[in-house]
């Protein structure tokens, strides 16, 4: 599913980060652990093709993404990957429903309203369909971000510090929902975090130094 070998990235030549080789199988859930500055976000961005010009190879779904052109990468990402970030980064000008519809629209897929309803119902957000993003609580917004990430049934979900801004209750809830959503959609889940609360939630872990 995901295969990484000989991966290294340098923002500057002197500060090169070298990543361990690893692989994650289809449908697996995996935690990327490490202190701030250890390159968790960089690795996640490299895997998602948000960051390019690296050394080494990244193979996702039998495709070596390092060989894709930029727009090919954009399309690949739209079809196969879903992202969740620490700050939820929903589009404030749009309602919940329209935020979700952005995922298939930007990926160039069919926009299916019933799929939107299905995902919202699963995450307990159906009554928030036509609400503006500003009116949501932090926890609700993070759930909408999860909904958006799983809407296209992506092969992989990348989550970057999805819980570090949340209190214990919401943290618990969000990680549970995230794991459930990934399982339901048969998506591989990769969570980059330094949040110690998650250590007990996902067994497979990769430590970055």
């Amino acid at each position: 599913m995901i295969q990484v070998s000989g991966l290294a990235y340098g923002y500057e030549a002197s500060k090169k980060i070298t990543f361990p080789d690893f692989g994650v199988a289809k449908g697996e859930q995996c935690l990327l652990l490490g202190e701030s500055g250890s390159g968790k976000t960089t690795l996640l961005h490299l895997l998602g093709g948000l960051l390019r010009s690296q050394q080494g190879n990244i193979t996702i779904q039998q495709t070596d993404i390092t060989t894709l052109s930029e727009s090919e990468m954009d399309h690949f990402r739209g079809k196969h990957a879903g992202f969740i970030f620490q700050r939820n980064h929903l589009i404030g000008a749009l309602t919940v429903r329209k935020n979700l519809l952005m995922a298939p629209f930007l990926a160039g897929l069919q926009q299916d309203e019933s799929r939107v309803e299905e995902v919202l119902r699963h995450l307990g957000l159906l009554e928030k369909r036509d609400v503006r993003i500003q009116e949501l609580s932090q926890g609700q917004a993070q759930r909408v971000a999860i909904a958006r990430a799983v809407l296209n049934k992506p092969a992989i979900i990348f989550a970057d510090e999805p819980t570090s801004a949340l209190d214990d209750t919401n943290c618990e809830r969000v990680i549970t929902l995230l794991k459930e959503a990934a399982r339901e959609n048969q998506s591989t889940l990769l969570v980059a975090t330094h949040d110690q609360r998650l250590k007990s939630k996902i067994e497979q872990q990769i430590n970055l130094k």
């Binding site: 998602g48 948000l50 727009s71 954009d74 399309h75 992202f83 980064h89 952005m102 930007l106």
Partner: peptide, 16 residues
């Protein structure tokens, strides 16, 4: 800027 970046992460091309 965040909106634009998030749209790219969802598969929007630069030209879009």
């Amino acid at each position: 800027r965040y909106d634009l970046a998030i749209m790219r992460s969802m598969g929007a091309t630069r030209s879009k």
